[in-house]
Amino acid sequence: MKERKVSLGLLLRLGIGLLVLAFFAYRFYGVLARQAYGAETWARLAISGLIIGSVYAVIALGYTLVYGILFMINFAHGEVMMIGAFAGYFVLEAFAASGFSARQPVLAILITFLAGMTVSMLVGISLERIAYRPLRGAPRLVPLISAIGASIFLQNAAQLMFGSMRRTYSNPPALERNVGWVLDVAGKPVSITYTGVLTFAFSVVLMIGLYLLVQRTRLGRAMRAVAENKEAAALMGVDVDRVIANTFAISGVLAGAAGVMWGLHNGIIYHYVGFIPGLKAFTAAVLGGIGNIPGAMLGGIVLGIAESLAPAVLDMPFQLKDVLAFAVLVLVLIFRPTGILGEVLAEEKV
C-alpha cells in the first residue's frame, strides 16, 4: 500500500485554520443567541462596510497596478492619497468661503475631485521619477526601503506644512454628511447617506474606467506587455519608462479620487490619514490576488465588509477593527497567499 505523506506544515496550517473557524463559530453563535444586534444594525454595518470597502478597492487598484509591473510595494501610496485629500480640502474650503459650493454643488464637487486627482497624479509621477526610477534593477529590498523613506517624507512634509490638527471637510450644503435616504429594515430606520452613494458610485465608475483602460486602449496593452516581460516589450517598441510613469500617474489619479471620497464621506483628514487605509488597501490587494485588477476590487469590498462586520460577529469592541483587518492579512498570507482570484504576475518572484 502506498503511504500518503502529510507534511507537518500542512497539518499545522489545518490545525490553525480549524481553531480559527471554531473560535469564529463559537463567538458568532454567542452573538446570535443573545440577539445582541437587530437586523437594522447588521444592515447598517454592511452598508458602511460596502462604502468603505469601495474606497479600499480604489486604493488597492493603485497597489496592484504598480506591483503587477514593478513587483514592488509602493509604500507611499497611502500618502499619495492623503495629499489628494488635502488638495480637495483646500479647494472645498475656497469654494465654501466664496459661496460657490452652495450655488453650484455639482460643479464644485467635480472640480474638487479633479484637483485631488491632479495633485495626486503629479505626486505619483514625481515619486516614481525621484525615488524609484534610479533604483530600477536593484535588489527588491532597495526600492522597498526607498518607498518607506518616501512615505515618511511625505507624511512629515504634510505635517510641517499643514500642521497636525484634524481638519473637517466643508462639504457643499447639498451633500452634507450623515444625511440621506432612509430605508426601513424590520421597522427600524437605516439611512443611506448621499456621500456614501456618491463614494460607491464613483468608485464603480473608476473601476470600470480602469478596466476598460487596461483592456481596450493602447496604453493598457503596453502596460500589460510591460508587466508580462519588460525586455520583450522594449524590443517590440514599447517605451518602458513612459509606461511605468503612466502607471504611477494612473495609480496617483485613483489615490487622489479615493482621498477626496474619504474626505467627503468620513469628514476628517490629517497628515496620518493615508497610513491605515493604505495598509488596508494593500491587504485588500493581497486578498484579491496581487497584480489582479478585478481581484483588487473584490478584495477591497470583501475587506471593507469584513472589517465592518467582524467586531459584531466576533463580539469584540469596535476599537479592534484595525486589528481584525490585519489579522485578515496574516490569515490570507498563511492559507492562500495567492489571494481569492489568484495572482496575475508574469515572472516568479522570490
Binding site: L279, L320, V323, V330, L333
Partner: peptide, 27 residues
C-alpha cells in the same frame, strides 16, 4: 516564514501596529 520579502515587511508592520493597538485598547 514562507512569505516573500516584501510581504514580510508589511505583515511585520501590521503586527507591530496590532501590538500597539492592543496595548492601548480597553480589552
Amino acid at each position: 516564514l514562507r512569505m516573500r520579502g516584501d510581504y514580510l515587511a508589511i505583515v511585520t508592520l501590521g503586527f507591530g501596529e496590532i501590538i500597539r493597538i492592543l496595548s492601548k485598547s480597553d480589552v
